[in-house]
């Protein structure tokens, strides 16, 4: 049995959690998902529609605000009683914070940023990039269960998850922590952190690059994003010039995304940008330069001026 630690946002499992579920099912289709929080009723109902065998609600007022102590204490207890073969989590900022402690607490092996899973000669083999992504290592975890695995965002596809007919049973497990277990005092978020946009959860992204020459073109691009229900993002030069905030930058010095649809407008495709978006399912590129490297990875390419192409796309979308 696999234990999936599901992340939720607005009482829905996050896309990263769905990807982690897809990964977990490659190890063993018997997946139990746990949701943590102050009140997990709605999130558990939503998660129960996923292809899992059981949902566990782990509720405590102290879990309302994230602390590594609270999360680790509760999960360690749950893992102890369920004895799963693997614990799988999406590789989020929060997971990066508490998972090493969880592994240490359980004396369990930990593999982070898994990008692929295969069974080789009866042993589950995990792929993970090393040396800044230049090499992919195949790793077999040794030692007694549980093995803890975090899953890189964008590496697994959640769209192929099977649909379910009946919701999975939901079980509430009493939380055992007390306030005294939690040593961290959580302060209000920093000014910097408050405005952070998490583009990794966006299903559609319209990204702009240097090909956009002025503010009127940017307005046109915003129209396209609205028509598609997409987030807007940019390559470095535009964020650098202050046209879009820096937290909307995609690439090696910005965010890494893997949306269903990525429309690259006037982006030449510098490798620094590509590494941040190559996991997108469908990539559409519009650029005046037919030799631009972006076309090498695009599924659909349009050689043309944004001024011609973008309004046509907006008109076509609005006509539907």
């Amino acid at each position: 049995m696999i234990l999936l630690v599901a992340d939720t946002s607005d009482d829905l499992p996050t896309p990263a959690s769905l990807e982690a579920l897809a990964a977990a099912r490659q190890i063993d289709p018997a997946v139990t998902a746990v949701v943590l929080g102050r009140d997990t009723a709605a999130a558990a109902d939503a998660a129960a529609r996923l292809p899992v065998t059981e949902i566990i609600r782990l509720e405590h007022p102290a879990l309302g605000t994230y602390t590594p102590d609270g999360t680790v204490a509760e999960l360690a207890g749950l893992v102890g009683s369920l004895a799963p073969s693997h614990v799988v989590l999406p590789h989020t900022y929060q997971a990066r914070d508490f998972v090493p402690r969880l592994a240490a607490r359980l004396a369990a092996p930990l593999l982070t940023e898994c990008t692929g899973i295969a069974t080789v000669e009866g042993r589950v083999t995990f792929a993970r990039p090393i040396f800044q992504g230049k090499v992919v290592a195949d790793i077999v975890l040794d030692g007694p269960a549980p093995h803890i695995v975090t899953v890189q965002i964008g590496a697994f596809r959640a769209d192929d998850l099977p649909t379910t007919t009946a919701p999975a049973p939901i079980r509430q497990v009493p939380a055992a922590i007390t306030d005294a277990d939690i040593r961290q005092v959580v302060e209000p978020p920093f000014r910097d952190a408050q405005q952070e946009v998490d583009l990794s959860t966006a299903t559609r992204i319209v990204a702009v690059g240097r090909g956009v020459k002025d503010e009127t073109q940017l307005a046109m691009v915003r129209q396209l994003a609205t028509a598609l229900g997409a987030e807007i993002a940019a390559s470095r030069p535009l964020c650098d010039a202050g046209w879009l905030p820096m937290d909307r930058q995609i690439g090696s010095s910005g965010q890494t995304v893997a949306p269903q649809l990525y429309i690259a407008l006037g982006i030449s495709g510098a490798i620094q940008h590509i590494v941040g978006m190559k996991g997108a399912k469908t990539i559409v590129a519009v650029n005046t330069d037919a030799d631009a490297p972006i076309f090498e990875i695009a599924d659909y390419g349009i050689v043309g001026d944004l001024f011609d192409v973008v309004p046509a796309l907006v008109a076509a979308l609005e006509a539907r």
Partner: peptide, 25 residues
């Protein structure tokens, strides 16, 4: 300049291969 991206590369691709990182802000 034209780069064939096999033998010749632009500067920005070079920078990527230098592993260079500076905090953007």
């Amino acid at each position: 300049p034209k780069y064939d991206r096999r033998l010749t590369f632009d500067r920005v691709t070079g920078v990527h291969h230098s592993g260079t990182h500076h905090r953007e802000d």
